[in-house]
Write a protein that binds this DNA or RNA. Sequence first.
DNA 1: AATTATTTTTATCAATTGATAAATATGTAT
DNA 2: ATACATATTTATCAATTGATAAAAATAATT
Lengths: 234, 234
Amino acid sequence: MATKANTRQVYRQSNTGYSKSADTRKAILRAAIVAFGRAGYSAATTRQIADAAGVNQPAINYYFGGKDGLYQACAQEILDNFKGPLEQVSLRALEAIGAGLDRKGAARQLQELLSALAEVMILSEEVSEAAGFVGREMREPGLAYQMLYRNLWAPGIELAAALIAIVKGRAEVEPADRVDAIMMISGISAFAPGHSVSMQVMQWQAAGKDGKALVLERLEAQILGWARTPAPGG
Amino acid sequence: MATKANTRQVYRQSNTGYSKSADTRKAILRAAIVAFGRAGYSAATTRQIADAAGVNQPAINYYFGGKDGLYQACAQEILDNFKGPLEQVSLRALEAIGAGLDRKGAARQLQELLSALAEVMILSEEVSEAAGFVGREMREPGLAYQMLYRNLWAPGIELAAALIAIVKGRAEVEPADRVDAIMMISGISAFAPGHSVSMQVMQWQAAGKDGKALVLERLEAQILGWARTPAPGG
DNA sequence: AATTATTTTTATCAATTGATAAATATGTAT
DNA sequence: ATACATATTTATCAATTGATAAAAATAATT
């Protein structure tokens, strides 16, 4: 997959005034998010995606200019439509930080953030396909990496790290807080659908509500551990 | 990639008595572990692998029967040659458990296990390519999944969970201990080479010794937190 | 209803991929 | 030195893939 700097081309828009193009575009995007998220860029073929969307293969070039354009459009679609729940929680946490937040409050916000993340990554079937796409791009940076890094990953990790620092009794974020944030998020991702090893070890068909609750309980134990430590230089 | 039940065929062995076949086989395996680990099964082509190994493409069929056979041979190669360091630590931990282990001792063994894992996953360039292959197969189960699950992942997670239970003051492993074990291992994997998001957030070229030390310090803090909690039903 | 624009489809193409067969080169045993 | 076995290579193939062009079908406008 070419990772050269590519300006994002928009081919067939969804605002042509014609009745069908928006539906067709959406169907292709949905099918593509699933295919790319599960199989990856190389293994997902434009014919498979077209079949799954109920169109034929040249429609992909017509609407998105080709496989590359479709891939990037998937990332944009995810940013536009699927990060809503996380965005709300993030805004609330940022407001609370700005208004001054004590350790207990920060622990509560952090738990809400991680809970929303777990909800997205573990429980929601449709959002979970988008999360699959995002997770894969994270591990195998391609055309959508910069877009997702700037708009999703870096803000999320920094927010979690800021909350962690406050829980620990500090105002400034340190490298250790970022490491903790990354590890927590990575730990949650181990229970997302398709993580066969975790499911097999736990003997779960899927994590489900109970699995999510258990994961969050383990994270809460850690957060409470931090909240109980004496503040540094205090 | 076909995931049908495949008996493992051995084509050209390394014990033919002819001087070159062992070298050629090894060169192909090395190149393949790198290619499959980085790009995945689909995106890695037999021509690329052959070029990297300094042979031509039909050599892959000659020695391994084809792409599938090569993939499985890679997994076997990794099991035969790269899990040595982890195996030693595991054996020591199992012996210590068998001989009776107190909470403090279990904390120490757990830290050694995680340290060895971090050494393998984060620091060693060559072993890290093998870990890349293993990590990918973990997330995208293919022909080598069962082999690796049985011989590597399940034993490793169960051992870590057993140590965690003892650290927490219990003899029996509970689901929460397994969740903790999975999350710890997943947390370490977030800092392996190629994890661009973590490197970019931390502003690290690579984790290096300092990064590894910081990750282990965060894990130690968690382990010590468990060790300090009152034993259940105590 | 006629014209124009858009969408969908059929047909085709060049390039790539894993596999195969046969030829050539090299190594081993007698 | 000869015969046999193995390793490497060249050449070829069928199938697949993303892209393209043109034709056909459908929708919107006048």
